[in-house]
């Protein structure tokens, strides 16, 4: 067991995947000699060669379409989109090709493409470098969408994603790249499957569902609430499509209260889907209406305003107060 950052854990996961399968190739901008702008692919081109770790022209649709062709040829391409906000030129190929070829061809053509996207805010970046576009992809059939929250999951899940025969959009919470944690070289068959959520804190009063960068925040909220005598169950969703609703349902059947949080804008987001699905399943058991704590329905704001956009510890606790029906909630913000 070693203690590493999430970025390094992703890098070692990629390395393992490339060692395990010679058909794994990496494509992206600046991933070669530079090692990626976040250094996730550091050293991989040196060790595996420019044929397997390819710096590409600056064209995301091109990268994605070329990955489709490589997958047609039997490769397992791993694409790095440099920043969340740069994925939109590739959206067309992802939605109309990557996610559909298996369905289109009646299961004949598989698209084992992994699309890595550093995402989310909180790093004081310029426009287009802090976005959370996961709902676009979760809404698209044929794409698996996941996000990791710990170095261990980063390492194991990237290996699982690459080994998966379906396309996987892999959202990496960039503001947690430098969070350290212990990382074991897990046997993939023994690890929690890629499409399963994980209960990371057990509790009995409120179910708090988070993923990616906000899992840390949700754990902090559970700790803080415990000081206040409240027992919060925190679920790290991990898989955003398909959703592991069974795990969430099991928890809500116990707690009767649901709070969902994500950085992405609220309307049409994953919080809405989870709240609706759990309400359908658990309506008569709910003590309060589910509450969403999300980014607002605005484009990502300038860095000096992002603290007002991003859900934080206090907003999570406020939502907990709301579902608990507490009289002394923080004021001014309503779900």
């Amino acid at each position: 067991m070693a203690t590493t950052t999430m970025a390094a854990a992703l890098g070692s996961g990629l390395r393992r995947a490339m060692e395990d399968d010679p058909r794994v190739v990496l494509l992206g901008e600046d991933i070669g000699r530079l090692g990626g702008v976040f250094r996730v692919t550091d050293g991989l081109q040196r060790d595996f060669g420019a044929d397997r770790v390819m710096d590409t022209p600056l064209a995301e649709a091109g990268i994605m379409g070329v990955a489709v062709g490589l997958a047609y040829r039997g490769f397992r391409p791993v694409v790095e989109i440099q920043f969340d906000g740069f994925v939109y030129p590739a959206l067309d190929q992802m939605v109309t090709q990557v996610g559909r070829l298996h369905y289109r061809t009646g299961g004949t053509v598989r698209m084992p493409v992994t699309i890595r996207i550093p995402y989310g805010g909180g790093i004081g970046a310029v426009e287009h470098h802090s976005e959370s576009p996961e709902a676009y992809f979760a809404h698209t059939p044929g794409l698996r969408v996941v996000s990791c929250a710990t170095p261990q999951d980063a390492h194991t899940m990237i290996r699982q994603a690459i080994a998966c025969d379906d396309p996987v959009v892999f959202f990496e919470p960039k503001r947690r790249y430098w969070v350290k944690g212990s990382v074991e070289d897990e046997v993939l068959d023994d690890a929690l499957p890629l499409d399963r959520a994980r209960v990371v804190v057990e509790g009995t009063d409120v179910t708090l569902v988070a993923y990616g960068p906000l899992v840390v925040t949700a754990r902090d909220a559970a700790l803080a609430a415990a000081d206040d005598g409240l027992s919060i169950e925190v679920i790290d969703l991990r898989s955003l499509s398909p959703l592991d609703l069974d795990t969430v349902e099991t928890s809500v059947r116990k707690t009767g209260r649901l709070v969902v949080t994500h950085e992405a804008q609220r309307s049409g987001g994953l919080g809405a889907e989870i709240a609706a699905s759990i309400t359908e399943r658990c309506f008569s058991l709910l003590h309060a209406a589910p509450v969403r704590v999300t980014g607002f329905d605005v484009p990502y704001p300038p860095a000096k305003l992002e603290e007002h956009f991003l859900p934080d510890l206090d907003r999570l606790l406020d939502a907990v107060d709301q579902v608990m029906g507490r009289q002394h909630s923080l004021t001014g913000w309503s779900a």
Binding site: G62, V66, G69, L70, G74, Q97
Partner: peptide, 30 residues
């Protein structure tokens, strides 16, 4: 899709105009 691409060495025809040129390029790189 009409046919098995592997059987005749021909991908499922593309409806999105031009998208297949990238697929051909990726396949060629392979």
């Amino acid at each position: 899709a009409g046919w098995d691409p592997w059987a005749i060495g021909m991908a499922t025809p593309q409806v999105m105009i031009g998208a297949q040129t990238l697929h051909a390029t990726g396949y060629a790189l392979g």
